[in-house]
Design a protein around this nucleic acid. Structure first.
Lengths: 342, 342
DNA sequence: TTGTGATATGAAAACGTTTCCATATTGCTA
DNA sequence: TAGCAATATGGAAACGTTTTCATATCACAA
């Protein structure tokens, strides 16, 4: 096949075609002083030559890279994929692309590598920290020092160094508890993620709050080392070993809940007839599972869009340096995994 | 916080520090003529100044964008995530980043948009088509015309325009059939993806082949409109409506298999005691499901790595224009969803 | 008439590389 | 010793923008 690489038009060619100077073309495109007549001639030439500015040249001139880094512990998991989809959705067509940096996947998986790639080499214009943990603190501080805009999504800690996007986890916890109470449950276990995770703390706290209104308390409270299905399996083993002490179990997130259900089902236990299970997040698999999982759905995609939006605004200098916290409500998806108390 | 944006060193500063010309520094870095003495002095200066070449400037000079486009029908789904992880793994640290273009998600979701963004504006250095279908044909041809390197992963059709990475689906089909035969199954249904999909055709063909060796034939053969769980649910409904005509069902992929199981389980049917279910792909959820799904696992991550590898080689002019097809074996993961014939 | 600020335009200097071309400096062969 | 590759180096011209600076035109008030 012949290689028809018709060279793309440059700004100089447009200038010649419109019979103006290069700088004038640039001004017309970027909205500077220009008479109506010139503006028209230039636009016509742009159309005729199918001119599109080279983002590479633009980046070079402006001292940018055109890349937004997304730092995440592990790029596995549906939650992160939804977030990433949101970020990409918003960045698409804006001369910016995404570089995902999974701290776990990298062979030299320490923050040092990321630090080097993303910061010392100045390879990113902005950074999104997804579910940042305290271990990323040095990285975050460095980024801030360098003057790189940062956004945090669902942080485990409160970082005052960038705009934050988080879910109203207390309210979600209350909603979940309310739903279980309505079904008549009084013995409710909570199996969260890491105890240091603010997400987990808030969810538990909301749960306690709502139960407290009825003079109730959660049954067993336990924490996992992470938010993976494996942790959910461990929770299930503990719950089974304790002799199924509760009629309902609230897990730290959907992945854990699926792991929990998986383990419990393998013992022949019927859900929700023998135990009700609830998760948080609203990942697609939750709906698919048998029985489908009742969960407090996060607006993850929207958070991704909003986070990159704020990053972009900051890049363009539109936003001041102040850090705003944006909070998102959850939607309680009542499905098959919860039922009336046996 | 003070903004300590210590300007990064440029090649000119390195040149001055090493007392050589700019061009010499460039040669040392890129491996051209240079005496040992000079080489050493330059390297020392590079270290001292922590010099890292600006990829933006490099891209501009070389006429590149530093972006690899990944075109996919829908960016949902674990299979694609694994592929993407592989691609990113390989590209990380290579001055290249990824722009995912999900044909489905875009608001103006037609190929026209992609065509414009990716090709007319020359915003990508290379393209990976993931599970490309015939509808993307114009896009593909345009890319080829422009001289943009292409790689195909698991194409639904045979495209002769770029290196191809695919799974040995016939062999996978044979393996699956062999496994079911060993368990004593003789009535085996097949519910594939779209009938035009080569993946589906090959899997079915492998299945038939192996069954044929025993003088057997598949029971019902049906096709879905896509590879989603929803299609699997439809298969399940048809299977149920037909009065559970087979003791085993082979689905087009894992997502479909999960949908199938979901629907069948909701009727109280026990898997594998009443029916054995098998999928293809090996997505993480398959292992998590209850019962866990027997599947022919693809080496998706590796295919992602290999595809970007080939793209990169082609970019550097290392590879000729010939299109090579790479085939990957599958691993049969025998899990709980298959058992002896009732 | 002349100064003044706003509006328009062009020329040229960056941005940080790579690469082409020219010029030395070698080592080796005729 | 001349001649000629191969090896080393430097100078300068790209790559395609944006931005600064200088200059020109204009309307309008003093």
């Amino acid at each position: 096949m012949p290689r028809v690489t018709r060279k793309r038009a440059t700004i100089a060619e447009v200038a010649r075609a419109a019979n103006v100077a290069v700088s004038t073309v640039s001004r017309v495109i970027n909205g500077g002083y220009a008479s109506e007549a010139v503006r028209q001639r230039v636009n016509e030439a742009v159309r005729a030559l199918q001119y599109v500015p080279s983002s590479t040249a633009r980046n070079l001139k402006k001292g940018r890279t055109g890349i937004i880094g997304v730092v995440v512990e592990s790029s596995q998991g549906a939650w992160f994929n939804q977030l990433l989809a949101g970020i990409e959705e918003h960045l698409f067509g804006k001369e910016l692309s995404v570089a995902v940096c999974s701290l776990k996947r990298r062979s030299e998986s320490n923050a040092g590598t990321v630090r080097s790639w993303l910061l010392e080499e100045r390879r990113v214009d902005g950074l999104v920290f997804a579910r940042a943990t305290a271990s990323e603190w040095p990285l975050i501080k460095l980024a801030k020092q360098r003057g790189i805009p940062i956004a945090f999504v669902a942080p485990d800690e409160t970082f005052e160094l960038g705009s934050t996007f988080r879910t109203l986890n207390r309210a979600a916890g209350r909603a979940v508890a309310g739903h279980l109470l309505e079904l008549g449950h009084e013995k409710i276990a909570f199996g969260g993620g890491p105890p240091t995770s603010i997400d987990t703390q808030d969810r538990l706290s909301g749960l306690k709050e709502q139960l407290g209104k009825q003079g109730l308390e959660p049954g067993t409270i336990s924490f996992g080392s992470d938010y993976t299905p494996k942790s959910g399996v461990q929770m299930a083993q503990a719950w089974l070993a304790a002799g199924k002490p509760t009629t309902a179990v609230v897990l730290g997130n959907d992945s854990m809940a699926l792991g929990f259900m998986r383990r419990v089902q393998s013992e022949g236990i019927q859900i929700p007839h023998e135990v009700s299970v609830v998760g948080f997040d609203g990942i697609p698999e939750a709906e698919l599972w048998f029985p489908s999982l009742t969960t407090a759905e996060q607006r993850t995609f929207q958070m991704g869009v909003a986070a990159s939006e704020s990053l972009l605004a900051r890049l363009d200098g539109k936003l001041s340096d102040e850090c705003v916290t944006h909070e998102y409500t959850t939607i309680l998806r009542v499905r098959e995994s919860t039922g009336p108390v046996p």
